[in-house]
Each structure stands twice: as structure tokens, then as C-alpha cells.
């Protein structure tokens, strides 16, 4: 039996983001929220492993109250327990405070029944930091294996996992002892088929709510904005200005344009 923890994040769909041109801030209204796509891979992997080995899936997320919708959706992947960390004291957390909050919660959840696998997406598409997974692993004192593309084998008796991870030069095949924390690449698992009965169950489910004052005992000064060493000093849209030489093909001939390009390539000793 595999005891699996999945950590997910609700994010704005960044492909739909708009910026207020006057203030340079995000327009959040009307931007749909989704489960971070790499976390969907982690949920899919959990679902697949549960079907293969049996066991249970616990899903946690930290976020505003509406992040409960992400957890309800996680139920469709066969989650047994869903937990929402929500409190104003958690707000404004950078990756250090986030990894603290998640790691303390995980330690609390596994007091009696330790997890074998901690699954995270490789990064969240709103921040793209890829720092929370390794941060949580450091706090749990377990090995982290990032950018995982394939689980080759899990031997539950020997507590051994063999997996593939992507590096810049190729694919590393890694053997590790459970428990490990894995961050998931896009191709690691496909979304499972969800029977209607599970969808209906998901609709009715509600997450357990964890706040700053319980049930996990947090050190207050390590939470949220207070616990975050990094601060955003300024947010801006970069100004663009460059002396651009413009040719319009409706007024300039293609031959002239090509000549110009060839000339530039010659000048730069490319041809």
C-alpha cells in the first residue's frame, strides 16, 4: 500500500493574463483559475499509482478560500483526503515561508502513517520558481528528485523506487530509497479517465480547513509575509524603445528587403 501526498496550487491561467497599461498591475478580474498544469500531472501520477499499488492519496493546497475548488477537482483523481490551508496569516508567503507551512503540515499529517511519496509539480506557471518542492524536501530531510519524466519501478517490500529525470544533457536513471519527494515533468502521467460516479462524489466533497492557529502548530513569525525574506520592491512592464529600421512590403520591394538582410549577415560575418 502506497501512502501518497500531493501538493497542488491554484493559479491564474497565465495564457489569459492582461495587464493594466496605466498601472502595470495584473487585471485579476475575469481571469480563470486552474490547477497548476504540472500539479495535474502529479495528481494523475498519484491516481495511477494508487490503482496499481493500492493505498491512499492526501492532497494539500495553500491559498485563498476559493482554492477549495482546486481541491474538489482533485477528488476526481481519487483523493481520499483534501486539505485547504487558508488564513490571512499565510498570505504573502514567498517560497521560504511556503515551504515551511507545507512541510509543517505534512509532518503533522504523517505523525502516525508516514508518506512514501511526496508529489509536486516541477513548477507553478504563475511564479515559475521551481523552489517549493526542493524547499519542502530539505525541511522533511528526504531526497528530492526534480524533473521526473518516468517511474520505472517501485518495490514496496524493499522500499526502492527507480525513475527517470530530465537533465540538460539527457535522462538520468535514478535509484532511491523511499520516501522521496518528486517534482513532475509534463510527460510523466496522463490524466486518467474519471467515471461519472467519481465526478459526482467530487462535487459533493468539501476540504478540511487548516488555519494558522490549528491543528498544526506553526511558529507564527515563519508564516506568510512575516516569514518571507524576499519582498517585491517594484512591479512594472518594461518600456520598449529602440531605433527600429522599418520596411513595409506594401511599399518596398522584397528584393530590396532581402538585399538589406544579406548585407547585415555579411557585416556580421555570418555569411
Amino acid at each position: 500500500m502506497l501512502n501518497i501526498l500531493v501538493s497542488i496550487k491554484q493559479v491564474p491561467d497565465t495564457t489569459n493574463i492582461r495587464i493594466n497599461p496605466e498601472t502595470g498591475t495584473l487585471i485579476r478580474e475575469g481571469v480563470p483559475s486552474i490547477i497548476n498544469p504540472y500539479d495535474v500531472v502529479a495528481l494523475s501520477l498519484a491516481c495511477y499509482l494508487k490503482n496499481q499499488f493500492g493505498g491512499s492519496i492526501t492532497v494539500i493546497t495553500m491559498g485563498p478560500p476559493q482554492a477549495r475548488l482546486a481541491l474538489k477537482e482533485a477528488m476526481e483523481f481519487g483523493a481520499d483526503r483534501i486539505i485547504l490551508l487558508t488564513d490571512r496569516k499565510f498570505a504573502g508567503a514567498d517560497t521560504l515561508a511556503t515551504s515551511y507551512t507545507l512541510a509543517e503540515t505534512i509532518k503533522y499529517l504523517e505523525r502516525e502513517n508516514p508518506f512514501h511519496l511526496y508529489l509536486f509539480g516541477k513548477q507553478a506557471i504563475d511564479g515559475d520558481t521551481a523552489q517549493v518542492g526542493p524547499g519542502v524536501a530539505a525541511r522533511l530531510k528526504v531526497p528530492v528528485i526534480t524533473y521526473v519524466t518516468k517511474i520505472e519501478n517501485i518495490d514496496l517490500k524493499e522500499k526502492i523506487i527507480i525513475l527517470h529525470r530530465k537533465t540538460e544533457k539527457g535522462v538520468e536513471i535514478i535509484k532511491a530509497k523511499l520516501p522521496v519527494l518528486i517534482t513532475c515533468e509534463k510527460d510523466l502521467a496522463k490524466s486518467p479517465f474519471v467515471p461519472l460516479s467519481e465526478i459526482l462524489k467530487a462535487v459533493k466533497s468539501e476540504p478540511e480547513i487548516f488555519a494558522a492557529d490549528g491543528p498544526v502548530k506553526f511558529e507564527r513569525e515563519k508564516l506568510g509575509l512575516k516569514g518571507s525574506p524576499t519582498q517585491v520592491k517594484k512591479v512594472f512592464t518594461p518600456e520598449l524603445k529602440k531605433d527600429t529600421l522599418i520596411y513595409d512590403l506594401s511599399t518596398t520591394s522584397i528584393d530590396e528587403v532581402v538585399m538589406k538582410i544579406i548585407h547585415i549577415l555579411e557585416e556580421k560575418k555570418i555569411i
Binding site: 491564474p12 497565465t14 495564457t15 493574463i17 495587464i19 502595470g24 498591475t25 495584473l26 506557471i125 504563475d126 511564479g127 515559475d128 525574506p229 524576499t230 519582498q231 517585491v232 520592491k233 517594484k234 512591479v235 512594472f236 512592464t237 518594461p238
Partner: peptide, 14 residues
């Protein structure tokens, strides 16, 4: 930040 829609300047003062 935000998928490259804006730029953010970050400090770590303390």
C-alpha cells in the same frame, strides 16, 4: 513574473 507578463524587482533586505 506571471508567465513573463510583467517584471518584478525583488529584494531580500534582512
Amino acid at each position: 513574473a506571471y508567465g513573463g507578463n510583467i517584471m518584478a524587482t525583488i529584494v531580500c533586505p534582512n
